[in-house]
Design a protein around this nucleic acid. Structure first.
Length: 764
DNA sequence: AGAGAGAGCCTTTTT
DNA sequence: GGCTCTCTCT
């Protein structure tokens, strides 16, 4: 026990050992939030206040849930299996699988991810002959999701105009289609689970009695529905009323259940709320405090991550926001280095500066994966990648296509889904003609009409289809039936392998020019099935050996956990990601680029209510990622949407006290226009050599000291060279060492630093 | 059925 | 500028 609590600071200790009552923990960035959360669980269990069975812990990402479980099993000799620790969606899935009948779902209901949902909506619009230019599927999807996240069904939705009245109709049609097909989208998982508990009193009482402690991570990111779900589980809320608008149910909030309500331990940081655009409602924090009459609000303000200057900058910036719950980070570490600010001539210049600086840091011994390049929007990564690539710096871009979202994987999963649930029209449409088997648009139209008339799934309608279309579609249905029959006795991974082979997927990709990687991914899917069997025995225990349930569990796993973006194989790499993606991570060195009005803060944010404040919180998140060194940069001109834009520096730069900043002037090496440098007093090299006090951080030498020379690898200053792209130029500077490079004046093509390892220069 | 061209789009995103 | 979607051509 004392071992468990050792090393906690007084606030952390207070939070961990709080008595069983509602509590709100305001956990600042880098304040040991996850540690407090997991230690709290361990403390509750080891002091006998609750068994592993009586506790529910909910997070937003699978990663966070996994992290919590890993740390927990390191603290306690505990079988974490069977514990209700997971994401909102994962836990709701679990609830619905266990009580599918009461929830009005088929036993093997499938989960639609966002892309599946969009495809389902497109199919719906087509079937109903709705003009998808008037009702864009994406817009309709967010309309539906937004309503579900408010707890509003189509039947209760308000239609304030003709257009919306039609959208509400389509929402109702979509609900009916999903129900008919036995599929559930992400928002539906939550809403169904909420309705299940609110309508079914015995079930609700069962879970309310079972869970005496509920712990919530990243509470500032919860939406209204998630909060309502928590209230219901904790024994708060109105019960007599049918589930409907959450707003209505909330009128009765505060009336506790008959039994003792569960204690909610909510951890969050209102300053790091950056997901309002997808429905997160920071207001939940205040509501929680009020509605649950929270007596214990604990602030974790000691930061264990960043040096003082970085924290001071973050504190100063965020103090410009209104209506904060209030928090001020401090550190026992020294002030550290000043924050470096770089003003670039262009986006390319900015990228060149960043890459050059990063290379130098690596040369000075900083680990590559301890360097993060952050940006507001994904489009900015291109120019950075380009510079990294030409400099030969290994890098990794976060975000993008993930494993279970790949085309070939979705195809294979669609076959598996049809085996589990033949009514899944989304899966059916995806693979009925992939690989191609002569089922064209006309056949599909006939099939869709038939299905619509009979109010049945495509699969069932196929049997009644006559003519040529009937024959080819019939053959597909027989294929699925054969797959189902032949895989019935196989274990999951064998089943996956069989489906990949017999569906024709493998043959198709074997014949494709670029198919090798897709084939590898398909093999990886077989591996994934194998390790799912081995590791995710949780779900399997509940499935109790039922092959159909095992398949359904695997498919749910694929939908709920899209998998890592890319395998992090190979050498360590500089990390590139959006600020959003960086939340929760930390790095020794952080570059925040594109600090320009209109980009960061983003221009679209100006139109949204409190948009600027969310942008500021985003900036706050970005700053607090850095441990030791922080670079802020902006460019006077930037290519955006194919044209050059002239930019003003971000107001966020003005919100950081100048005393914390050191403005770096570009060295001639970085300036595209010579006239540009002359106005600067400092000079970039001079700026970086010093270190104006504070402790910590390694002071790197000036660039001039980094091996400058008059001759390198047979090239000397003054010599003429030719480059394939830039033409003829004259060498004006040279640098030796492992990363030897020369600076060449190409005249019209500009001044370039070229790494001799990569650039092909022909001496003239 | 598949390739190639033209049009329109363009903030952030986990489940 | 580049991606995605759609249309058209073969």
């Amino acid at each position: 026990m004392s071992e468990l609590l050792a090393g906690l600071n007084p606030d952390q200790l207070a939070a961990v050992t709080l008595p069983s009552q509602h509590a709100l923990i305001l956990a600042g960035a880098g304040s040991g939030k996850t540690r407090v959360l997991t230690t709290r669980i361990a403390w509750l269990i080891s002091t006998g206040q609750v068994g592993p069975h009586g506790l529910l812990a909910v997070t937003f990402t699978n990663k966070a849930a996994k992290e919590m479980l890993t740390r927990l099993s390191a603290m306690l000799p505990l079988n974490t299996r069977g514990m209700w620790v997971g994401t909102f969606h994962g836990l709701c899935n679990r609830l619905l699988r266990a009580h599918y009948r009461e929830a009005g779902l088929p036993a093997l209901f499938q989960i639609l991810d966002s892309a599946d949902q969009l495809a389902a909506i497109k199919r719906l619009l087509k079937a109903l002959n709705v003009d998808d230019e008037k009702f864009p599927p994406r817009e309709l999807a967010s309309f539906i999701n937004a309503h579900k996240e408010q707890g509003i069904r189509a039947a209760q939705a308000e239609a304030w105009d003709e257009y919306t009245r039609r959208r509400v109709e389509l929402y109702a049609e979509y609900e009916a289609q999903c129900q008919r097909e036995g599929v559930v989208d992400f928002a539906e998982l939550l809403l169904r689970a909420y309705e299940l508990l609110s309508r079914n009193e015995p079930l609700r009482r069962h879970y309310q009695t079972r869970f005496t402690h509920i712990l919530v991570d990243e509470f500032q990111d919860t939406n209204r529905l998630q909060y309502a779900w928590l209230k219901l589980l904790a024994g708060y809320g109105e019960y007599g009323r049918a589930a409907g608008q959450i707003a209505a149910a909330e009128a009765g909030a505060g009336s506790a259940a008959a039994g003792a309500p569960a204690a909610i331990f909510a951890v969050g940081d209102d300053d790091q709320s950056i997901y309002a655009f997808r429905g997160a409602d920071v207001g939940n924090m205040r509501d929680f405090e009020r509605e649950f009459a929270v007596k214990s609000v604990i602030r974790l303000e000691q930061n264990y991550r960043s040096h003082g200057n970085i924290l001071d900058a973050a504190n100063a910036l965020i103090s410009n926001n209104n209506g904060r719950l209030g928090k001020n980070l401090w550190t026992a570490a020294g002030a550290g280095e000043p924050i470096r600010v770089f003003e670039a001539f262009s986006d390319i210049d900015e990228a060149r500066f960043i890459v050059d600086e990063a290379r130098e840091l690596v040369r000075d011994g900083v680990e590559r994966d301890q360097i993060a390049l952050l940006y507001r929007s994904n489009a900015q990564s291109r120019v950075l990648e380009h510079q990294l690539f030409s400099a030969g710096v290994p890098y990794r871009v976060h975000g993008g296509l993930r494993f279970f979202e790949r085309q070939e994987i979705k195809h294979a999963l669609a076959y598996l889904r049809l085996i589990a649930n033949a009514d899944d029209d989304t899966a059916f449409s995806r693979v009925v003609n992939f690989p191609t088997r002569g089922i064209g648009a006309r056949s599909l139209e006939a099939l869709q009409d038939a299905a619509h008339r009979a109010n049945s799934s495509l699969y069932n309608a196929a049997a009644g289809l006559a003519g040529k279309a009937g024959a080819s579609v019939g053959a597909f249905v027989r294929l699925i039936e054969a797959l189902r029959r032949d895989t019935a006795a196989l274990k999951l991974s064998e089943m996956v392998a069989h489906v990949i082979d017999e569906s024709g997927l493998r043959r198709h990709y074997l014949g494709e020019k670029e198919g090798a990687e897709r084939l590898e991914n398909l093999d990886e899917l077989i591996n994934a099935a194998e390790s799912f069997l081995r590791e995710d025995s949780d779900a399997l225990a509940e499935a109790a050996g039922d092959a159909g349930a095992v398949l359904a569990a695997f498919l749910a796993h694929a939908s709920l956990e899209a998998g890592e973006h890319q395998a992090g194989e190979g050498e360590t790499a500089v990390q590139l990601m959006t600020v959003h993606a960086a939340k929760g991570l930390e790095f020794d060195v952080v570059f925040i680029s594109g600090l320009e009005q209109g980009l960061f803060p983003h221009e679209n944010a100006a139109q949204e209510r409190e948009g600027l404040e969310e942008e500021r919180r985003l900036m706050y998140v970005a700053i607090t990622r850095a441990r030791k060194r922080l670079y802020l940069s902006w460019a006077q001109t930037r290519m955006l949407h194919g044209q050059t834009r002239y930019c003003a520096p971000s107001i966020f730069l003005d919100e950081i006290p100048p005393a914390l900043l050191r403005r770096l002037a570009p060295a001639p090496a970085f300036a595209s226009a010579p006239a540009f440098t002359s106005g600067y007093s400092g000079g970039y090299a001079a700026g970086r050599a010093g270190g104006n006090g504070g402790g910590g951080g390694k002071a790197s030498g000036s660039r001039a000291a980094a091996g400058s020379t008059t001759e390198v690898r047979g090239l000397r200053i003054g010599q003429s060279v030719e480059h394939a792209r830039f033409g003829v130029g004259v060498i004006v500077a040279a640098e030796g060492g492992a990363d030897a490079r020369v600076q060449v004046n190409f005249g019209a093509a500009g001044m370039k630093w070229l790494a001799l390892d990569y650039a092909k220069l022909t001496p003239l």
